[in-house]
Amino acid sequence: MATRLPTRVAPEHTARIRGLSRAFGDRTVLDRLDLDIERGEFVALLGRSGSGKSTLLRALAGLDRDTTGELAVDGTVAVAFQEPRLLPWKRVIDNVALGLPPGGRERARDALREVGLTARADAWPLTLSGGEAQRASLARALVREPGLLLLDEPFSALDALTRITMHRLVLDLWDHHARDTSVLLVTHDVDEALLLADRVLVLGEGRIAHESRIEAERPRRITDLTALRDRLLGELGVEEGTR
């Protein structure tokens, strides 16, 4: 089991991972992986299916106790999953307030206002659209004022237009929180990573196989980043470099 020692994280970092390994049977998914996430940094983690992206995220979320190595996170960790995972028997506001100390409903209401969902606060989750449900899930994560926000492909099931709106929303929220919150976005969408992240990581062979910093100002246009895009696609094993 990975040790979780918040005190071991350097002040400029939110998360520190050293030699993290995870095997399922005799298949090694994470192999002595090292990673630091800076305070307020927006990191995108790319990788092919089965490359261990979700395994790493689950380890950071504290959902996987069968890892070995060293893993330390400073502050609260919050997760927005691919499926919104709202409790269908609790109204939206109560989903957001779940697990908060007494008086959390006011904060939950603020969080819903931030994601533009005030009008649906008293709705049942099953009546929400995909985008609304994902926004509620984001509000539920943000209301905890996390030091590290983990996003596990939260936009992949949304239609293209909703996804663009959600990208803007995530960047706005991250800005609004004075960039105190580090974000780790797990995705298989290279464009999404390029538009959002400060740093893009590619997971391969159980380790960080590649990393690129993106200094470009936001909002970005993908047409300005084609060179890096081709490079990342190459790292992911997609030969598209001749365009």
Binding site: G62, L63, F81, R85, L87, G99, R144
Partner: peptide, 16 residues
Amino acid sequence: GGLIEAGRTLRLGRTA
């Protein structure tokens, strides 16, 4: 199981 996991990431204790 996904909801139980979500609950755990919300720091719900066993009783909650």
